[in-house]
Design a binder for these strands. Structure first.
Lengths: 188, 188
DNA sequence: GGATAAGTGGGGTGGCACCCCATTTTGGTC
DNA sequence: GACCAAAATGGGGTGCCACCCCACTTATCC
């Protein structure tokens, strides 16, 4: 578990790659070209692959700060007097993020499935899951949510909708509309 | 609008490509290699690209018979005495298909967004949409469904969930579970 | 059976992910 | 400031892919 300090140039390249990746992912989504990112960052493609051994690893890093924001928002909402509404607010916030930031949804979904349990807690999905746990248990205690619903279910739902509406003219509005529909059910 | 009859060898190649594509998509999902499909079909890649100008066109063709099955199922269910239950049954059937046939969900979703209105009615999405319209309107009249829900909304929901659970150990069960959750809402 | 239009596929282009290894850069040490 | 071992780099290689061009083959109709 010893973390040797990285060399200065390594850290500099790491940051450059991350900055370029942020731009590229915002423009092209999660399947942006890694070569292009390396080119924009002014590094060789081998360097990119050394710093981020997989596409998923790079995406996780790109979305880390956004995810932190969502987590801190969850902690604030945990104090809300209406736990049911707080949960819905938070899920809509995730939907808004994911719909705006093309690729975040795919990243969250895949990291949920392709990693084993030990790694999961340090990934985007794991962080968001942990943050939502308290919001959900409060909402459940308040009787606003069925007891058989898990945080994972809700996140899958939000991410699925963001992913599905990625090509819609107004992904954000569409995600939000369908999310509310799914949370309330289709009955009158 | 004159359709010249195709040459016999052209039709033969068309069918071979389709058969190979069915196998490949079942194994690798919607992003199967087109070159590989051409190779298995015993034709040059140019021939594949001439018969199916885009990946989506090929996928649409691959899924056509499955989609026809779903459409006829919708027509049968339209006679069901409980329109609400019939609609749910049909949506679950779509979920089961889409979860089993990797790539169908993505195909349906994309064809919904990337084509203009004139083309849409001949695509998989268009066919399924049309078939669901009567089921939905009956369910609505029976008061089982909110009036602001469209067939497109429901299909997007099902497809989104199939797509999101594609990497799950048991995609079919997971899709079904989440679909029922979304249809009923998260409240108790 | 021969004209002709339809159809074919080998091979080219350009792009991609990912990897190897000779070379450069860094940070600590004297 | 010079030196050296370890860390880091990136040019270039491999093998894959989608997609396209055009000289050639083949079916069809008379």
């Amino acid at each position: 578990m010893l973390e040797r300090p990285k060399r200065a140039d390594a850290r500099r390249n790491h940051d450059r790659i991350l900055a370029a990746a942020q731009v590229a992912v915002a423009r092209d989504g999660a399947d942006a070209s890694l070569e292009e990112i390396a080119r924009q960052a002014g590094v060789g493609s081998a360097t990119l692959h050394r710093h981020f051994p997989s596409r998923l690893a790079l995406l996780e890093a790109v979305f880390l700060d956004r995810v932190e924001t969502l987590c801190s928002q969850a902690r604030e909402l945990a104090a809300d007097p209406d736990p049911g509404a707080a949960l819905v607010t938070w899920l809509r916030a995730i939907g808004a993020y994911a719909a705006n930031v093309r690729g975040l949804a795919a990243s969250l979904l895949r990291s949920a499935c392709e990693l084993d349990h030990a790694e999961r807690s340090v990934t985007c999905h794991g962080k968001v899951s942990d943050a939502g746990e308290e919001l959900l248990s409060r909402a459940r205690q308040a009787g606003a949510v069925r007891p058989d619903v898990s945080v994972g279910d809700l996140l899958t739902l939000v991410n699925a909708l963001s992913l599905a509406t990625e090509r819609h003219p107004d992904p954000c509005a569409e995600t939000d509309r369908l999310l509310l529909l799914a949370l309330e059910g289709i009955g009158p």
